[in-house]
Computed example of a mutant assay.
Amino acid sequence: MTQQFYTVLTHTGAAVLANASALGQGIKLTEFAVGNGGGTSFNPDLETLKNLSALTNEVYRGAINELKVDPENPARYYAEGIVPVSVGGWTVREAGWFLDDGTLFAVTKYPPSYKSIPADGVATELPVRTYIATGSSNNVELKIDPTVVLATREYADSKIRWEEITVDTNAKDGQRYKFMGASILTLPAAGGDPVYFEAALNSGVSEETPAKIVVEGGAQINTSKGLFTDFLVTQPKVTWRADFENGEWTL
């Protein structure tokens, strides 16, 4: 194989696919995982990848976000998983695609990509995308469980409006707030759905003129850098997620 980065069925995955095709049954893919390959020297050959039953060093696993037949090539499926904002601090070099019984169906030799976390100062989701060749979608159907699909930021942004704030504001569960200036966003004393916030690119928010996140009643906010009664937002276009867990807000 001349490509440097690619996705192949494992030997076990190919056997499952052949059996499902012969019986006219579908296959359900439920999870994806990413790994760091065990280090910078990760460079397995094709046969090594096909023989895998697990990633070399898995660092994150989640639900597959999207799976659909490639409209330009019905012999393969487009697959996507999302590594969320809060997870990372390592370099992705491998990805795996798993059946509902835990079988590693396909494996991806992935171009090295560092997954940042909020503590790095910049944090984003990492979409892991590939094509999985199955021969023909007429012979076998790959499926995912729609009840566990994670919404990507792009999709969520299209469904949930960002509320632009220029004055001090009391936050509501499940809402997204965009600071247009150095105002204060107050989280409720007890929450439900996550609250998202970021400063707009031309908001004037900076280390000298930060926006602030506080909690109603003066409770502390738990972050990777410690507890704060007021959390300062100093960089534009960095999205933060606040979750209410175990009686406290966590970023």
Rank of each mutant, 00 (worst) to 15 (best):
Y78P: 06
A18V: 00
A123N: 08
K237M: 12
A189C: 00
V85C: 09
Y177K: 05
F98N: 05
N73I: 00
A133T: 11
L142H: 03
A190K: 15
I82M: 12
D145H: 10
I221N: 08
I117L: 10
D120Y: 09
G39Q: 05
V83T: 06
F228Q: 10
T124S: 14
Q220W: 09
V87P: 10
E72Y: 14
L150V: 08
Y6A: 02
G218A: 02
T147F: 12
L99T: 13
L201S: 13
G192N: 11
N43C: 04
I221Y: 10
G37V: 04
G89Q: 11
L67R: 03
V233Q: 01
W249P: 06
D100H: 10
T103C: 02
K225L: 13
F32R: 03
V215W: 12
E163M: 12
D243Y: 13
I184E: 15
A211G: 10
A106F: 07
N57L: 06
L232V: 00
A189L: 09
S137T: 03
P84S: 06
Y78W: 11
D70M: 03
G24L: 07
V34L: 06
A189Q: 13
N202M: 04
I117E: 13
K68N: 10
N65A: 09
G174K: 12
T48N: 14
N19H: 11
Y155W: 15
G13P: 08
F98Q: 07
P210E: 08
L187V: 01
I132T: 02
E154D: 12
T10I: 05
V34K: 09
E66K: 13
V87A: 08
I184N: 12
G121S: 01
E163Y: 13
G39V: 01
A106D: 07
G96V: 03
A22K: 15
E154F: 11
K172F: 04
A190S: 14
L227R: 13
G88R: 05
G13W: 05
L187S: 01
V59F: 15
P188D: 00
G191D: 01
T7N: 09
A199T: 03
G88W: 08
P146R: 05
T12R: 15
A151K: 14
V34T: 10
G62Y: 05
A133E: 15
L104F: 04
V107H: 04
N222H: 14
T108Q: 14
A79Y: 09
G121F: 04
V16S: 13
R153D: 12
H11C: 00
E72L: 12
D230Q: 14
A33G: 15
T130L: 09
G81W: 02
T124F: 13
N57F: 11
I132A: 02
S41I: 00
V205A: 05
I184L: 12
L142C: 01
D157V: 00
R129V: 02
E58S: 11
V107P: 03
R241S: 04
G192W: 06
K225H: 08
V85E: 12
A14T: 01
T103E: 12
D173I: 01
E208C: 00
E141K: 15
A95Q: 09
K109L: 09
Q235Y: 12
Y6Q: 07
G62R: 08
E216T: 05
